[in-house]
Structures are given as structure tokens and as C-alpha cells.
């Protein structure tokens, strides 16, 4: 098996043993079927134990899995007639973000998402899914176009973050991200955001101001990578695991904090084990989200989005405590 993760090693080893036994019974004249069934039972239990009780760090590993399905994987599974539109019409075409028009079960939509590569060559081309300002400006151009033609917008979020580089700063990385947050607020069409891998900070949020935000079960969404947080908090990036536990970055955490709407269940062991099945699960959520949002008026959509972000944040007033006394 390719790309197995540390925490799932017991499962992998047991699977290997079962396979060996099966192979052995074929050649030797011994009946081991009783043992095999027993082991298979144990495997099922072990899988349940491991996959049902994943630690935040395990989820980070799955979210970063090299074979984890990307935006383009889901696009080809979920949409018909996808036509990719390139370029921000100003400076360049950033391949770390893809976008275009398509049909979702008959409905015209605009689809935009971060795009990373699955091998080194593609990762270099896509800058490891870390966009430059032109990527965000392309996304905004396509969102405005969607608004003009009254198409819902679907955003797939999957980035370690906006690219930290000289050229990116020169061309206004901050302005590009800020502009997207600002403009997405007033879009008069439904915007649905789905975190499919890593939701890294402002670079993720720049495609993330939506009416509905969903997360795949094993994806993460955070203000900074666990490594970055560990470096800032404890001046030691090797403490990433500890940071991951304390920062509340998994889908269940964000659901609890009232930031996301739905957790999209993943196939056992992570989305990369069965892309088709995973796409079906995403499709179902999309349908229910769209049904709900398409019933709102333009003003209703803008207000819903406003209210959604308005209620995020925790605070209290000193005067309240005084009042209680």
C-alpha cells in the first residue's frame, strides 16, 4: 500500500498478514480459513478503533496525504462540461488556483479551488497549492462573472496558505486577500465553501467567505500551520503535534466553535481510499446546501452571510460582571 501513515500501521500490518495467509493456503494443503476469518474480525475491530478515534495530528497527516484528492479530482467527479478559465486579466495566470464554469446536476455553477500537485513536477507548476495575488484576483474575477450570470459559486479550499514570497508581497498579497473577503461579502449569488484538505490561514479564507462552509471530516482549518504555531508559541516547530491538539483545527472542533455548517463524513481511512465515494458524499451536501440557498433572495443571501460572520467570536463585557454583583 502506498503512502500509509504512521498511526494506521497496525492495520496495514494485519492486512499484510491476512494476505500472506491467504496466499499460503493457495499453495500449501492446509486449511487456515478459520484463522483468516478470526483475523479479519480482528482487523475490522482494529480499523474501527483506529479510524474512529483519530487524534488531531492523525487528521493533519490525512489532510496532507500526497494522494489526497484535489480540487480537480472532485471537479471531474462532480461536474459536467467543466471549462477552465485562466488569468486575472492583469498580471498572470496562477495555477495554484483553478476555476471555471460547469454544470452541477444540470445547474450552471462557477467552481473555484486551490490546486496542489500530486507529484514534484506538478507541485512545482502549482507552487504546492500556495497562491500568489494573481490567483486570488483570478478567483475574484470569476466570482464577479458568476454574479453577473447569476450562477452559484462553489469553492474548494485546500492550501497550506498564501505563498510567502518577495514577488507575492510586491504585487500585494495582503490587498488581494483582503479584497476577496470584502467583495465576497456582497455577492448576490449563493457561495458554498468546502474545505477538502488543509485550510491554511488567510490564504484559505480568501476563497472562504461563503453562505455555507463545510469541511471534510479529516480536513483542517486554522490560523496558522501547527508547525508555525509551535515555532511562535514554544520556539520549537517539532512541537507541531502538541500545537495541533491545542489549536482546535479539525472539523469536529470547528463545528463545535460554530464556524462550519456540516462535517462531510469521509470514507474509512481518508478520502484518498475512494475518491468516487467521497465525491458522492460531497455531492449530497452540495445539493442540500444549494436547495436551501437558492430559495433566498439576493438580499437574503447577503444578509445571511453577514449574520454568519457577525456571530463568530467569543467575548464578554466587564460591566456585565459588575452588574451580576
Amino acid at each position: 500500500m502506498v503512502g500509509e501513515l504512521e498511526f494506521e500501521k497496525p492495520v496495514v500490518e494485519l492486512k499484510k498478514k491476512i494476505a500472506e495467509l491467504k496466499e499460503f493456503t493457495k499453495t500449501a494443503d492446509v486449511d487456515l480459513s478459520a484463522e483468516i476469518t478470526k483475523l479479519e474480525h480482528r482487523l475490522a475491530k482494529l480499523e474501527e478503533d483506529i479510524y474512529e478515534h483519530m487524534k488531531p495530528w492523525d487528521r493533519v497527516q490525512i489532510a496532507r496525504h500526497p494522494q489526497r484528492p484535489t480540487t480537480l479530482d472532485y471537479i471531474s467527479e462532480l461536474f459536467e462540461g467543466f471549462f477552465e478559465c485562466h488569468g486575472d486579466r492583469v498580471f498572470g495566470d496562477d495555477e495554484a488556483i483553478v476555476g471555471g464554469i460547469a454544470r452541477f446536476k444540470g445547474l450552471p455553477v462557477t467552481v473555484i479551488g486551490h490546486q496542489r500537485g500530486k507529484d514534484t513536477k506538478e507541485n512545482i507548476r502549482r507552487n504546492f497549492g500556495m497562491p500568489h495575488p494573481e490567483g486570488y484576483r483570478k478567483a475574484m474575477r470569476l466570482m464577479k462573472q458568476a454574479e453577473k450570470f447569476n450562477r452559484p459559486i462553489i469553492c474548494f479550499i485546500d492550501t497550506k496558505g498564501a505563498y510567502p514570497g518577495k514577488a507575492a508581497e510586491e504585487r500585494g498579497q495582503s490587498e488581494a486577500i483582503a479584497r476577496n473577503l470584502f467583495e465576497m461579502a456582497s455577492l448576490t449569488v449563493p457561495v458554498i465553501c468546502i474545505v477538502i484538505g488543509e485550510g491554511g490561514s488567510g490564504g484559505a479564507l480568501a476563497l472562504g467567505v461563503g453562505n455555507h462552509i463545510h469541511m471534510l471530516e479529516n480536513s483542517t482549518y486554522s490560523v496558522i500551520s501547527p508547525e508555525g504555531a509551535a515555532a511562535i508559541l514554544w520556539k520549537d516547530s517539532t512541537q507541531a503535534k502538541k500545537a495541533a491538539e491545542s489549536m482546535k483545527i479539525t472539523a469536529p472542533d470547528l463545528k463545535e466553535l460554530g464556524i462550519i455548517d456540516e462535517i462531510i463524513p469521509e470514507v474509512k481511512g481518508g478520502a484518498h481510499k475512494d475518491i468516487k465515494q467521497q465525491a458522492i458524499a460531497i455531492g449530497e451536501i452540495l445539493i442540500s446546501s444549494l436547495k436551501e440557498l437558492l430559495s433566498l433572495t439576493e438580499e437574503g443571501l447577503v444578509n445571511q452571510r453577514y449574520g454568519k460572520y457577525k456571530q463568530i467570536g467569543k467575548y464578554s463585557f466587564l460591566n456585565d460582571y459588575i452588574g451580576v454583583k
Binding site: G81, F83, H86, G87, D88, V90, F91, G92, D93, P108
Partner: peptide, 26 residues
């Protein structure tokens, strides 16, 4: 295309189909 000015470069043999697809989405 590289400099962000075009949505796509389309080969003449594919133009009609691509155009038809885009028109149908609209």
C-alpha cells in the same frame, strides 16, 4: 495566456464544441 490576459487558447478544431458548451452553460 501566461500573462493572465486570456481565459484559454483554443485550437480551431475544438472551437465549435467549446463555444457550444459555454453557450449552453449560459
Amino acid at each position: 495566456l501566461k500573462h493572465g490576459q486570456l481565459d484559454a487558447v483554443i485550437h480551431r478544431s475544438e472551437l465549435k464544441d467549446q463555444l457550444s458548451n459555454i453557450l449552453s452553460i449560459h
